[in-house]
Amino acid sequence: MHLRNGWRVLCVVLGLGLVVLCACGSESSCGPGAGVVSRVVDGDTLVLQSGERVRYLLVDTPESTGGKRECFGAEARDFNRSLVEGRLVRLEYGEACTDRYGRLLAYVTVDGREVNTLLAENGYACVLYVSPAGKSRRVEFEALESSARRAGRGLWGQCSVAPCER
């Protein structure tokens, strides 16, 4: 009888441990599943408190740093900052883990809203597809950009030439 109770306790402890692991933003083979944003670099790049640099998949916002300041770049950076800086974000990876600069490539979600999608649908970004990263969602993002263009949202209504059309 004593051995049976020991197995029950062990099963309960292991089960609770599994629940805790699943709820904590588990690691993927690419990198962390979640993290707190310490700094927003620009409209499509952030830095986690752990030091990892994250580049948003499938979007390219106008430049807002260094000597290259493009139309709507500051607005894209500020929009990104308002959503994620100092916040806990969830990261989901696509077909490639990193770009040529060593940044993690991810879809970034905060409070149940995916930032990549918000950037595209509100006209803060153009679609940037670099095979194979983002292949499974490329068509979805192209449709979001097309809708923003037609409606003149964001950079599509403010810039004489969209930075991604150069």
Rank of each mutant, 00 (worst) to 15 (best):
M1T: 13
L3Q: 13
L3T: 11
L3G: 12
N5I: 14
W7Q: 05
W7H: 08
V9L: 09
L10H: 04
C11N: 10
G15A: 13
L16S: 11
G17K: 07
L18M: 09
L18C: 07
V20C: 13
V20E: 10
G25C: 10
S28E: 09
C30W: 04
G31C: 03
G31E: 07
P32D: 02
P32W: 13
G33N: 12
G33M: 01
G33D: 01
G33Y: 14
G35K: 02
V36I: 15
R39V: 05
V40S: 06
D42C: 09
T45L: 02
V47L: 07
L48V: 03
Q49S: 14
Q49A: 05
G51Y: 00
R55I: 05
L58C: 06
T65V: 10
T65A: 10
G66M: 08
G67F: 12
K68L: 05
R69M: 07
R69E: 13
F72G: 06
G73P: 02
A74E: 00
A74S: 04
E75I: 07
A76T: 11
A76H: 09
F79L: 03
N80S: 02
S82C: 02
E85F: 06
E85G: 05
G86R: 00
R87K: 14
R87S: 01
V89H: 09
Y93Q: 12
E95Y: 01
A96Q: 13
A96V: 05
T98G: 00
R100V: 06
R100K: 13
R103K: 10
A106W: 11
A106T: 11
V108S: 02
D111Q: 13
R113N: 11
R113G: 07
N116P: 10
T117G: 05
E121M: 15
E121Q: 15
G123P: 12
G123H: 14
Y124V: 11
Y124M: 11
Y124R: 10
C126V: 15
V127C: 06
V130Q: 13
S131E: 15
K135G: 15
S136I: 01
R137F: 07
R137T: 01
V139N: 10
F141V: 08
S146L: 14
S147L: 11
A148R: 04
R149D: 03
G152H: 01
G152S: 00
C159L: 03
S160F: 07
C164M: 08
R166S: 03
